[in-house]
Design a protein around this nucleic acid. Structure first.
Length: 761
DNA sequence: CTTGCAATGACTGAT
DNA sequence: TCATTGCAAG
């Protein structure tokens, strides 16, 4: 390993990078193109601060993943020494502020052992609430409700604020979901009763904490004299405001990002945060890193030609001094299975020709479900691979089940954990009894645990047989609780896994899946053992410490050495920040990439395009794009057409390499026959049967809103999103609400006050 | 209360 | 295709 400590680290930076590193005081924005050495700038900037006498304790660095934080900390440690580096507060927004919240949770009425609900927990709770309110779960789909609540929270709108917001209420009424606010209210209350925060709460409650407790705000404002935020383009309003508040005193705020790589608007990310930086900090300095050190000219220029199609962006010119390199390969296959084989063969071939390692290759796709055909093909020719994302270790059922017992030991009010294990393993406490517990808890306005642990105080009409079983369960959990801070995490975890019956339940299942579940439990226990052994001397690692951010861990966080030389398979979202010599972007088909969900508006389509930009710019030496003309979806075959994104690449950077087919036994050795661009065959089939919902230029459904005071039933109208339609019903005098039939989407209720409609006749 | 089978609907993306 | 849900019978 290189010893950076002896090296003049600043000499390895280019002029612009160096300027960004040295401008330590005052608001700073770094616009960093793909592959421009952004991480180096962040790393060296922090090292530089510490070298110049700033206490590491006073530095806060917010990264996009915990893995990125760990790696950066290691690199800083190499420059200035680990003992200093470890004092920097570094991590994701969620993990940093979860820890801060634990220190102050009583101020918000939460226990310090509050539970963090993951997405599954949140949706499960919402589902229960929807049922309790007697609402139809087809209209109020938990996933949709979750999204709605999530985006409210990310914009710092509480349940009360939601109910009071006339725009939102009107919107919900228009989309025929007028009772969303009730669900939100119940959800908020139930989370609180359970001592639980969901992912969005970690940011929301941090805002509340900083808003309502000036002493706390003051403390952190002065602790974090220097603040750095990576991937600033992907922060949402809630995160933006936390940063703004913390930086308000010293204003030593450095944000780093690239608007062209903003791909998380579905999570509430707001590009505006980057665009508005100059408004919040008028005397800011901006540095643009435009030289790409990662990729060949072909890749950089191809990516530039694609992103140029977006309207919303900060002007910059990414360029490179690197070699020209190969053109981008485009490969068509007949089916998704063939796509798997062809990509696998190409990897095999490249590996031989270039003497490359498995870890030099990545297969990137739009959706997790696409991984299957590649896994099968790779397994067939024995190439080792690793899938990132998808179901992470901590989301497996058996792991969540055992962790649910841990959660109950730490916080018995945790409703979702209770629901999971009150009858697992089976102990005769069925659904009807559990429902009675919920009804009682709502009635007495206490937690579920209060009801079952104090039956004398909160009588229910649960039959005595079931009640006895419940009491036995309560006693079991209580016995775990008393041990929580007495014995170490491993001992307690072992006790729980045995006495809860989980270990036996899985041990008795001799099916291959059962065996693997048992092994997973053992792996979790081994992980906990490791945890207890690694806490400092004279300290005990308790289970509650281990639990602190289990909910925030992802696969990338517990990468093991055994995954070293493997081909990486992941979604493009998961590939952000990574780089590989050889990248295969697969499934480049209309309605898949760009996703059909994103065809409704220009901003959504532009985000898909940025996603494609991210995919391309992961590649160092060679990028290959593939698409299949048919693929399986929901078990049936659908035909598909090549993605518009392929066509958007300047043709001079493309090379088309299509496999032959037909009666052929042997396609050539690699299943490929090469053609240069000058082929007679049209590169891409025309797209005339593509539904023109909205094309890229938003002119198509552009409308001139008409005066709607004398709108009549039967009028033909045009809506900017739904296109042409006919008025089939009106309510109120003068008309307030119209029912309009749109051929594409069916009947829609529109409030005339808000809906922009053009009357066509 | 549990089990087993038939019917159903889901595929963006992830802290 | 796969996982979850609903329903009938034990």
């Amino acid at each position: 390993m290189i010893n950076f400590a002896d090296m003049d680290y600043l000499s390895t930076l280019n002029a612009e990078q160096l300027a960004a590193v040295k401008n330590t005081e005052g608001p700073t924005m770094v616009i960093a193109g793909a592959g421009s050495g952004k991480t180096r700038v962040l790393t060296y900037r922090i090292a530089h601060l510490i070298r110049n006498g700033i206490d590491a304790f006073n530095i806060l660095a917010l990264t996009f993943t915990n893995k990125a934080a760990r790696e950066m900390k290691n690199r800083i440690g190499q420059i200035i020494g680990d003992s200093e580096a470890k004092n920097v507060t570094m991590g994701t927004f969620h993990s940093v502020f979860a820890r801060i919240l634990r220190n102050h949770s009583q101020k918000l009425g939460y226990p310090s052992n509050f539970t963090i609900y993951d997405t599954q927990d949140s949706k499960s709770l919402l589902k229960a609430i929807i049922k309790e309110l007697n609402l139809d779960d087809k209209t109020y789909k938990p996933a949709l409700v979750y999204g709605r609540i999530s985006s409210a929270k990310n914009n710092l709108i509480s349940a009360a604020g939601y109910e009071a917001n006339t725009d939102i209420i009107a919107e919900d009424r228009m989309s025929a979901k007028p009772r969303l606010f009730e669900i939100y209210k119940a959800y908020e209350k139930r989370c609180f009763m359970a001592g639980a925060m969901d992912f969005d709460d970690l940011l929301f409650k941090t805002n509340v904490l900083l808003r309502d407790h000036p002493d706390v705000l003051h403390y952190y404002q002065h602790k974090f004299k220097y603040i750095l935020v990576d991937e600033y383009q992907d922060t949402n309003y809630s995160q933006y405001l936390i940063v703004k508040k913390l930086a308000a005193v010293y204003m030593n705020l450095c944000v780093v990002g690239d608007d062209a790589q903003s791909i998380y608007s579905f999570r509430g990310a707001n590009i505006e945060n980057i665009l508005n930086f100059k408004n919040d900090y008028p005397d800011y300095k901006v540095f643009k890193l435009e030289q790409n050190y990662r990729s060949t000219k072909n890749i950089v220029e191809a990516a530039n030609s694609v992103i140029a199609k977006n309207k919303d962006q900060i002007q910059k010119t990414v360029w490179t001094d690197n070699v020209e390199g190969n053109r981008i390969k485009v490969v068509r296959t007949l089916t998704d299975n063939e796509e798997g084989k062809v990509v696998t063969n190409l990897i095999y071939e490249t590996k031989q020709n270039e003497q490359a390692n498995n870890s030099d290759f990545a297969i990137l796709y739009r959706t997790n479900a696409q991984s299957r055909s590649f896994e099968e093909a790779l397994r067939k020719i024995n190439l080792p691979y690793k899938i990132y994302g998808g179901l992470s270790f901590y989301q497996r059922k058996e792991i969540k089940d055992l962790i649910a017992y841990f959660r109950l030991a730490a916080n018995p009010n945790d409703e979702e954990a209770l629901k999971r294990v009150i009858n697992y393993p089976k102990r005769g406490i069925g659904e009807s009894s559990f429902e009675k517990v919920i009804i009682a808890a709502n009635h007495y306005a206490v937690s579920l645990w209060d009801v079952i642990s104090k039956p004398g105080e909160y009588p229910t009409d649960i039959p005595s047989g079931a009640m006895n079983k419940i009491s036995a369960f309560v006693t079991t959990i209580e016995s775990y609780q008393v041990q929580l801070n007495k014995i170490d995490a491993f001992e307690l975890a072992q006790t729980i896994s045995k006495s809860s019956g989980i270990l036996k339940e899985l041990y008795d299942d001799k099916s291959p899946e059962g065996v693997s579940r048992y092994e997973n439990i053992q792996a979790l226990l081994a992980g906990i053992k490791e945890f207890t052994e690694n806490v400092g001397e004279n300290e005990v690692g308790y289970l509650s410490d281990f639990m602190i951010d289990v909910a925030l861990l992802t696969d990338a966080d517990n990468e093991k050495d055994e995954n070293k030389d493997k081909i990486s398979l992941m979604t493009i979202h998961a590939s952000k920040g990574l780089e590989f010599p050889f990248v295969y972007v697969v499934g480049l088909e209309e309605n898949l990439f760009p996703s059909q969900m994103a065809l409704h508006s220009r901003p959504e389509l532009e985000e898909e395009r940025r996603l494609f930009y991210v995919a391309l710019t992961r590649a160092e030496k060679q990028a290959t794009l593939t698409y299949a003309t048919s693929r399986y979806r929901y078990g049936n075959v659908i035909t598909s057409e090549p993605s518009r994104f392929i066509e958007e690449i300047d043709e001079m950077h493309l090379e088309v390499a299509n496999p032959t087919r037909g009666s052929g036994v042997s396609l050539n050795q690699y299943g490929l026959e090469r053609r240069i661009n000058k082929t007679k065959e049209p590169l891409f089939t025309t797209r005339k049967n593509l539904k023109k919902i909205v094309t890229e230029n938003d002119e198509v459904n552009e409308i001139t809103p008409s005066d709607l005071t004398d709108i009549k039933v039967g009028y033909n109208v045009k809506h900017e999103r739904y296109g042409k339609g006919k008025v089939v019903g009106l309510e109120g005098t003068p008309p307030m609400k119209a029912t309009v039939f749109f051929p594409q989407v069916g009947n829609k209720q529109l409030l005339l006050k808000f809906a922009k409609l053009e009357i066509l006749d």
